[in-house]
Amino acid sequence: MAVIVPESLESALAALTAYPDAAVLAGGTDLMVEVNDGRRPLTRVVAVGRVPELTGIRVDGATVVIGAATTFAQLERDPVAELVPALAYAARTVGSPQIRNAATIGGNVATASPAGDALPVLVALGASVEIAGGNRRRLVPIADYFTGPKRSVLDAGELVVAVQVPVLRGAQDYLKVGVRNAMVIAVASLAIAVDLEARRVGIGLGSVGPTPLAAPEACSWVASRARWRSDGVEVADEDVVEFGERVAGAARPIDDHRGTARYRRHAVSVMARRALRRCTR
């Protein structure tokens, strides 16, 4: 069988074990670009879209578990829009409506592009990636997941099963800079999440380093400077500006055809300021 369409996670993993050269197909929006361009010869495909363990969104206590086969179109809507608004905002910026109807969050995580739109949100929220392979199941904190540009700890024969995203009380947002008002790859992007319970601020950055990045130093600094209340958080104006600089300091951008390192760092500082202002008062 050139195309294997497993009906369970177990059979999907068995197929990947049996055929280590097989390509994993979910929404196809990354894989098929390479195939069409002749960069990815296919010998065998495991199409995981119908694996029941990979579908569905369920709330498990303070965590929402989003199946890897969930599309960005689904992420734009409830329950994700209500529980994790930053993820819904990020989803809306992915490609076109047609792409959002096909592309999946699992694919975004597996491809691990520094420009993957969902990824800064997962970083800001401290999400975890559920991975299954062979006889092994593991839950990898997003901070330990990426190892380089389009590289991760995901091994051959493994599948992203779901992402576990904390449901936080507090404001969050996602900002993305591109030179077109729709359908654009991020020149720089930033996700922010305020956690009123833990009194923490989380930041995730996209397209400004070899992997999606966090800004732990800036976040702990601002958390220590903020005035926390049960229903919100206040940050002084001058601290907002300094936060922008500190977040920009966490970026490791390069010059490429989409933008310069200098602009990217600047954009990060502006986005960080605006994001923090929107999420505080």
């Binding site: 905002y89 910026t93 900002l175 591109g178 008002n181 605006r274 929107r278």
Partner: peptide
């Protein structure tokens, strides 16, 4: 936000 520069990228208030 869709009508502003940056569109769905939510960059501009």
């Amino acid at each position: 936000v869709l009508a502003r520069p940056g569109g769905a990228g939510r960059t501009a208030g």
